[in-house]
Structure formats: C-alpha cells, structure tokens
Design a protein around this nucleic acid. Sequence first.
RNA 1: GCCGACGUAGCUCAGGUGGUAGAGCAACUGAUUCGUAAUCAGUAGGUCCCGAGUUCGAGUCCCGGCGUCGGCACCA
Length: 638
Amino acid sequence: MPVITLPDGSQRHFDHPITIADVAASIGSGLAKAALAGEVNGKLVDTFSLIENDATLRIITDRDPEGLDIIRHSTAHLLAHAVKSLFPTAQVTIGPVIENGFYYDFAFGRPFSTEDLEKIEAKMSELIKQDIAVSRNVVGRDEAIAFFKGLGEEYKVKIIQDIPATETLTIYEQGDFADLCRGPHVPSTGKLKAFKLTKVSGAYWRGDSNNEMLQRVYGTAWKDKKTLDEYLKNLEEAEKRDHRKIAKAMDLFHIQEEAPGMVFWHNNGWTIYQQIKRYITERILENGYAEVSTPQIVDLELWKKSGHWAMFNEQMFTVESDNRHYAIKPMNCPCHVQIFKQGLKSYRDLPIRLAEFGSLHRNELSGAMHGLMRVRQLVQDDAHIFCTEDQLQEESLKFIQLLIDVYRDFGFNDVTVRLATRPLKRIGSDELWDHAENALLEALKKAGLTFAIFPEEGAFYGPKIEFHLKDCLNRMWQCGTLQLDYAQPARLEAYYIAEDGSKKTPVMLHRAILGSLERFIGVLLEHYAGKLPLWLAPQQAVMMNITDKQADYVVDITQKLKKQGVRVKSDLRNEKIGFKIREHTLAHIPHLLIAGDREVESRTISVRTMDGSDLGSMSLDQYVKFVETEVSKRGRIE
RNA sequence: GCCGACGUAGCUCAGGUGGUAGAGCAACUGAUUCGUAAUCAGUAGGUCCCGAGUUCGAGUCCCGGCGUCGGCACCA
C-alpha cells in the first residue's frame, strides 16, 4: 500500500498501486492537467507509470527544467511521427534534445525541402490537435529487433544491437507511430503547445564522415507560444550581432572570392587588430616573454621531422622553387625550436618563453570557413615555453593567471574551460602522462577555475587546456589554449645541459591567450554587439559642427585632439546635427563631440556618448583626461 | 570534403509560368545654415558570381565550376 511523499514533505496514502497521473489528480485538477511526468525516488518516469511501493514523488510540469526537456524530446517524437505519416519510406534513427530544442535524423531517399518542412509542421500541429495518447511497452531484445525489422526500420535494429544486453528496452507508441526510446514522454500529444522546425541539414550516420548522410531536421520547442516567440525574437536579435554584419556596417574588413578564408582588413578593422596586438605585446613582455619572428616558408624536411607533415599535410599549403619543396607555415612551433637550438642552453636559462605574432596558413576544408571565426590565414598570440619538468606546473599556473587577467581586460569574465586528457593513441609513458595531466589539473585548481574534463581529447603528444568563448548564437569557439608537448623538442633534437651535466630534452608548452586574433576579434565584436569600449574602438570620437560658422574651430580642435592621441575625425557636412548624431551613433562611435556658437565662444566641446547620455560641455584638457581614464579602464567590468 | 539553400546597383532586397532589370538607403548636384537619433528636390548608377548549353530570345530553364550562408565532419 504505497505511501507517497511529496516535495513539501506531505504524505498521501493509497490502498492500491497508483499512477502519477492519479496522484496528481488527487492533489488538484490543475496539476493533473499540467503533469508531464513524475520523478519517483529521483528517477524520471511517465505520468502513466504505476507506483506500487512507498516513494517520494515530484510531479514534473512545464515549470521544471526537466519538463521542458521532456516537451522537447516528445516534440522530436512528434516530428518523427509526422514524417513517417507523410513519408512512409523514411526511416527513423535518433532524435535527441539539444540546447533550446531538438533534432531528429532520418534516412530518406532525398533531402527534405523547405516545403516539406512546412508540410511536416502542419502535420505535427494536426497530431497535437488529435491529442493522441502516448503509451510505453517494455519489450525483449529479440522481440524489439523483430518488431523494427517488420517495420523496415534498419537503423533502429542497428541501434538496438548496440545497446548493452543488461538494459531494458522500451517502445513508445502514439497512434500508428512507434519508436524505441528510453522516455519519459508527455502523456499525450496535446501537451505540446509551442514548437517550430528551424532548419534541415545533412548529418552523417553515427557522426562518422565515412558513413552515409542522413537528413537532419532541427526544431525548437517551448512550454507555450509566448516563450517560443521570445526565443525566436532573441535569435533574430542575436543574428543582428553577427560579426560579419557588424563588420560591414563598421567598415572593418571584407573577404572576397579570390582569397577564400583570408581577410582584407580595412583601416578600421586593422586599427582594432593593432590595438590588440600592442596590448598583448605589452602584457607578455612584462611577463618574461621574448618576441621573435620566424620564416613564412620553410622546407618540407623540417615539417617532416617535426611530425606535422605526417599528421596535417592536407591542411598545409605548399610551394615549389628551384626543385625544393616548401610549406607555408601552419604553426610557429618548429621554428621556435630552431631558435631554441641556436647556442647551447643551460638549465639556468630555462624557462625560455618565445612569442611570435606569426602569420599562419592552414588549408581548412571549404565547408569549415566561417567569417573571422574560421579562416585560412590567421595570426595567433602564440608563444612556446621551453622549461624543465619541475617548472611545468608553475609555468602553467602563471600562464592561466595571465590569461584570466587579459580576458578581464576584454570584458570576458565568463569562460568555459576544458581539460583534455590522454587520448587512446598517444606517445610517452603513463608516468609522464600522469605527471603532465596532474600539472595542468593542479594549475587549474590553483587558479580557482571551474572546468570540465574531456577524457581522451588531448593531443597525441600531451594533454591540453582549452579556453572557449561563445559567439552570439551560442556557438563555442576555442580561443586560448595551453598544451604540453614532450614530442616535438625530442623529434627536433632540442636539449639543454642539466645540473648534473647531462643533456636533457626540455618540455615545450604551446600557449595562446586570444588564440587566433581573427577569431578573437570576431567573438569580441559579437560580445559587444559592435559597441567596442573606448580603448578598442577604431574611431573613438567624431567632432562635428552645427553650422558652417564653426567649421574652422572644429578642424582646429580635431587636430589638437589627434596630437594628444585621440582617434578622432571631423564631420563638417552640411547636415542637421540630429542627422550626424544618428549616423555616428549607428556606426558605434563612442564619443560624439559637438561645437556650436556656444562652444566656440567658451572654447569647449559638448560631449555625447554612443549610448545617448549627454556629458555636457568640457574643455579640451578635461576631455583628453576623460578619454585617458576611460581607455585605462579597458573593458573591465567593475 | 559531405547535404541543402543562396549569389541582381556601394548596402539591404524585389523581380509568377523565359520577352532587353526595379525600390529604399548610400553616392553625386542644387537648395537649406539648422543645438543632440533621418531637411527638401533632382541626377547618375548594373558583365544579374563565372563558364558552357537549350531557345528567335535566359536574371529566369539545363549542365559544370567558384564563393557565401546553415548544418555535418574536421579544427595541430
């Protein structure tokens, strides 16, 4: 006779096994209607599942995060249901919940068109209206295989064959549609209120590019129309922040057909670029790095020795001259090892930190390019630290601390950190890996960072820490990285003389804070929606006159401000002041400086910021001081 | 690289079923001289991504290529 304990501690006694739906109904009719699933003793189950023994129960509604996941999962099923009824030859595969929605992969003879999508959506709405009850059946393995074979669902059969024999298999049915699924699901299709199919694309079966391509349909689902609309609106807003759009509006750069994946930086964009480079140079020099510069084109022999040619030759551009074969460098590291090797190094010289803003070329697959985020020519704020085993952890910690501080200056206080550990295919002893992983782990802990461990994701030569930033559409981009490398220094025969007089191979740390400057600028533009803080803004101020009378004054003040290092231009056009203000505000110029008769009279300028606040009149000196203070704050959030 | 969509004026985009390209903004010219997010009028502007084909005739249809976009895969 089950006694059911609810989240508020109250208990309900029943004299017979009871479903969650019934418990909900016994509490109230509103809850009965809202119930999507239940959590019984910490496990999510369907509302129609039977409770036979004493249990704690939480009824899941669309107010719970789990409720939303269930809605999305059930909407994925609804999608499959609609597809199967419209296109019976389509085979179902998997349909998981993802951030903000779900997708479902189908094997189908042809791609789905946008018209198909509309039809599918309409069918889904129809199925919702019919409010079809969902049921769950536990089935035996052979039974399940026979069942899906009978339906011609070959992929489901493959999926079942891969599920461990210990797991029970369940089939969910709604009307004439059945799918292998762990559940739970909403009790009936009528519970699904707000969804939208967003895009179709190809996706490889089991994520392997050697396999056939399936048709993936993406969708989003929410508890009600209101939250769905909010989400769609947010998406639209986010798309406006796309760095490619902002760049066009701000005249930052362009990319054209003749040089795919390579950037033509316009003056405005290049000003940002230079500003960042200058800043990083300053920061690394004060942190004991030495800046170097190495060749762009290097004989293939070096890349063979370093291991790059064997691993990454498809992504390397090559050139030929005088019967010699060269590669345009995709990375700086082998060249930095060459500098390390010049002259005998003692343990006393270590650590040696070599930094370079080298231009790198990587022949990325054509489909991989993405604005500034993924390009074929890039510059990293790259450096390699050569050190001893003992210095590993301290160097790692120092780097992480520098990175965090630099990110703060750019206004990023929220960074996703991953520790990628030993992959299956690797070189080096387990002791070495223990040591290396531990060094990074300890460094992360000491730095006080929260991070996730990504097992088997490390490089073949060593573990790595990845620092990811999000773009406006929530796509993650790796920016910073710290990698331990035991292989290259040895392969390229770098050594130092240890305390005991023996030759030892140094450990090499590959590290970058911003990663590719191109990508970082892309993320930065989206982060700020183009409204860069003063220190980065390519144009910091525009000085404008109200009528022609103040033109000379404006030219004079502009000149003086330029001499003081302010990135300012004048706008003397015969336009109304409102028009000029609007234009420069839309161009995200931080300071709008205005001079009318009053200002000429008092030798001042009227200062307005791009967010619309009027700072009143100030003298030239006052303004320059104001700029200096703002610039020195950089992008830090107090 | 794979699947799909797209490529028209400087920008954003319109151009059922084939009949010599259009709007808004920007540009240019003129008027206006104005106080914090759009003054008015006029003018000019095109290799419709490239190549081949079907057709009397192609921005539109077919084929091939390039690029971009959304995903997949990849990402030292």
